[in-house]
Design a protein around this nucleic acid. Structure first.
Lengths: 351, 351
DNA sequence: GCTGCTAACTAAATCGTTAAAGATAACCAC
DNA sequence: GTGGTTATCTTTAACGATTTAGTTAGCAGC
C-alpha cells in the first residue's frame, strides 16, 4: 500500500469494488443508492481514513466552493481591530455559518495578483468600503458572473447596503446645535487626497468622488449649520486617516491643547473611536464633558456605551448590515440597494 | 462566440494558436518562453477578459491553494468581537498577507461536515483555543499531511504557541496580595462541564482536561495564595462562559450587589473584558477603585489602558502569537513548541 | 556534415471529483 | 410474454489548470 498519498474517492471505490459515482453518491445523494450500501461505504470510508470528497476537486467540478470572500478596503490587520468592521464581519459570518458557507478574508491592500488569485475560488463577494480609486474591482470577476454586494460605498450596477448617513448626521448636528456652541469643529475620517492627520482647510484637499460616506455625512452637518446660520467654512476641520486610538490621539491632543479661547467646545466626530479618544484625552486634561466640551460620535459601538460619559452618537447596525449583505450574496434576498435606518443615541457626552 | 461561459486558459490558447502549456507558462514561469510571446499572451489575455488561472483548478492540480484556515473554538460571531481573538487574527493576517496567502475563517462550532468540507482546501491550519473535547480534530487532516499549529492549548504531536500562564498568574496574584485582601475572589472563564454563569464551588465542576490555560492560571493563583496562607477553598469563584460585556454584566452585578460584609475587595479576573465590566459596574454603584475594590485582569487589551483606572493586568502579545503561528504554519520558522513571555502591567485598578 | 546542446514550444497525462446518460435486473400490469 | 417503470449501480466525459516528457529548430564546435 502506497504510504503517504491521501486516500481518494477512487481508492475507496476500488477497495470496495464499486464505481466512483456510487461512492460520490453515498456522500452527496443518499437517495441514489440503497441505504445498506451507503452505510457500508461510509463505514469503510471511516475505516480507511477517507474524510469525504476533496474540496478542491469538488469545487472545480461543481463550480461552487461554499466560500464567500469579504474584500476589505483596509489591511486585514486594521480591519480586524476596528469595532465597526468586526461587527460587519460578525453579521456576515453569522449568516454564512447558518447556511454552510465559510468566510475568506481578502484585503484591498493586498497585491492584486493575490487577490485575483484567491478570489476566483469564491462563490461571491462582499466588498466593504472600498475606495473606487483603488481600482481593485478590475481584478474582481465581471459583474454577472458571480454575485457581488457593495457595503458602504456605491458601485455602479451592483447591489449596495448603506445607512442613511446624510439624514443621520443632519439629525445629530441639529441636536448638538440646540445648545449653541461658540466654537464647533469637525473631526473627519479619511477624506483627503493624501494621507494626512492634521487640520485641513474645510474645502480643499477633499477627494472628489471617493469616500462617498464621509461626504454624505459632511453634507448632513452642513445642512444643520445652515439652519443656525453657521458658515461651514468657519468651522475648522481636522482629518484622521485611520480609525485607531493610536492615530487619533496626537490629533486630538493637538486640538485639546489649543489655548482656551481657540479650543472647540463642540466636536462632531466621524466615528465613536475618535469621540472616545476625545473623551479619554479630555479627562486626562481635566476638561469636563459635557460642560467644557461636548462630543458626538458615529457608529454606536458598544465600547462607547459602557462607561460614563456615554457617547451621544448615531447608532448604525453594522451587524445587520453584514447579515443583509451576506443574505444578498447568497441569493436569500433580492440583491437590490438597501438603505438602513440609523438611530440617534443621546448620551451624556452631548446631552 | 458562446456568450456566458468564462474564458479559460484553453480558449486563450486556441485563440492564440499556442498550446495550453505555453499560456500556463506565461503566467507561472516567465523563463520558459520568449519574452515577446509572453507579452503577447498577457496582452491578449487582458483583451479577452481572461483574469489568470482559475484558483480552483490550479489548487486541484498543484495541491496548494495559498489559503490558511484559522479554526476558532468559539463562533465566528463571538471571536470577531473579542479583542484577544481579533488580535491573534491580526497577527496571522499580517504574516499571511506578506507572504501571499489568504485567510479562511472556520469555527469549531460549525457543523462538522462544513468544517471538513471546506477545510480540505486549506494548505495549513491554525487552531485556536479549541477544547479537545470538541473532537473537531478528528475532522481535520491527519497529522503530517498538512501543517497544523495549535494556539493556547495542547495538542499532542503538534507544535503549539502558548504564553506562560501559570507564572504570569502567580506574579499578578503575588502583586495583588502584597496588600492583604480581606475577601479575595476569582472570576473565571469557561472551565465548567456545563455552561454556567454563576458562582461555582472552587473544586467541583471543573473540567478534567479541557481548558488547560484556565487551569494553569488557577494554579498560578493558588501558588500565591499558598504563600499567604490563604486556603484556595476559601476563595469564592464565579464562572463566566463567554467573554462579552453582556454575559459578564449579570454575574458581576451579582457579586457587587452582595452585602458589604460579603462583597469581595479583590477580584482576580481571567480576562480584561471581565475586569472592565467590574470597573464599569463598580463605578455605577459608587464603589471606588482601588480603595473599595481592587481588580486585576488578564490579556492587556488596549481598551483596558485607555481610560482611568488603567487595569492592572498581565499583558500577552496576542498579535505576536498570531504572527508566530502563521510563520510556523507557512514553514518560515521551525514548528516547535513556543512559550511566549508575558508582562505584568501595574495599573491603577490594583496598584 | 555530424554531433551535441540549448531555447522554445507542444502533446498528453493527471489532479479528485460530479453529472449526464446508460446498463441491468426486478417488478408490475395486462 | 411484452412493454413500461423503478431502483440501483456503472460508464464516461468533463471541470480548468499544471507538469512531465518529448519534439523541433537553431547554432556552435570540430
Amino acid at each position: 500500500m502506497p504510504t503517504s498519498r491521501r486516500t481518494t474517492l477512487k481508492d475507496l471505490a476500488r477497495e470496495l469494488g464499486v464505481s466512483t459515482a456510487t461512492v460520490s453518491n453515498a456522500f452527496n445523494r443518499p437517495d441514489q443508492l440503497s441505504p445498506k450500501l451507503r452505510e457500508h461505504i461510509l463505514s469503510e470510508a471511516r475505516r480507511l481514513g477517507y474524510r469525504g470528497p476533496d474540496a478542491k476537486a469538488r469545487s472545480l467540478r461543481t463550480g461552487r466552493s461554499r466560500i464567500i470572500a469579504v474584500v476589505l478596503a483596509e489591511s486585514l490587520t486594521y480591519s480586524l481591530n476596528d469595532a465597526v468592521a468586526s461587527e460587519l464581519l460578525s453579521g456576515v459570518a453569522e449568516v454564512l455559518d447558518a447556511h454552510g458557507h465559510t468566510l475568506l478574508l481578502l484585503s484591498g491592500r493586498q497585491h492584486e495578483a493575490q487577490v485575483n488569485g484567491s478570489s476566483s475560488i469564491a462563490d461571491g463577494f462582499i466588498v466593504y468600503g472600498l475606495m473606487p480609486s483603488l481600482m481593485l474591482l478590475e481584478e474582481l470577476p465581471l459583474p454577472g458572473q458571480r454575485p457581488l454586494v457593495a457595503v458602504d460605498f456605491d458601485l455602479e450596477g451592483q447591489p449596495t447596503v448603506h445607512v442613511d448617513d446624510e439624514p443621520a448626521c443632519y439629525a445629530i448636528a441639529r441636536h448638538a446645535l440646540k445648545t449653541p456652541p461658540r466654537r464647533p469643529a469637525v473631526i473627519n475620517l479619511r477624506l483627503t487626497k493624501h494621507p494626512c492627520n492634521a487640520r485641513i482647510a474645510s474645502d480643499q484637499e477633499l477627494l472628489p468622488a471617493d469616500r462617498t460616506i464621509t461626504r454624505a455625512r459632511l453634507a448632513g452637518f452642513h445642512q444643520a449649520f445652515a439652519e443656525h446660520a453657521i458658515d461651514p467654512a468657519s468651522v475648522p476641520m481636522w482629518n484622521i486617516e485611520e480609525n485607531t486610538h493610536e492615530v487619533c490621539a496626537p490629533v486630538v491632543a493637538e486640538i485639546l491643547d489649543l489655548p482656551d479661547e481657540e479650543r472647540p467646545d463642540l466636536l462632531l466626530c466621524m466615528s465613536d473611536r475618535i469621540a472616545l479618544t476625545v473623551v479619554t484625552l479630555a479627562e486626562q486634561r481635566g476638561l469636563r464633558i459635557p460642560e467644557d466640551l461636548r462630543v458626538t460620535g458615529f457608529d454606536g459601538i458598544a465600547e462607547g456605551q459602557y462607561r460614563a460619559p456615554r457617547l451621544t452618537t448615531v447608532r448604525q447596525d453594522s451587524v445587520e448590515k453584514g447579515r443583509i449583505a451576506a443574505r444578498m450574496v447568497l441569493g436569500l434576498e433580492p440583491a437590490e440597494p438597501r438603505l438602513l435606518r440609523t438611530e440617534l443615541l443621546i448620551g451624556d457626552s452631548c446631552p
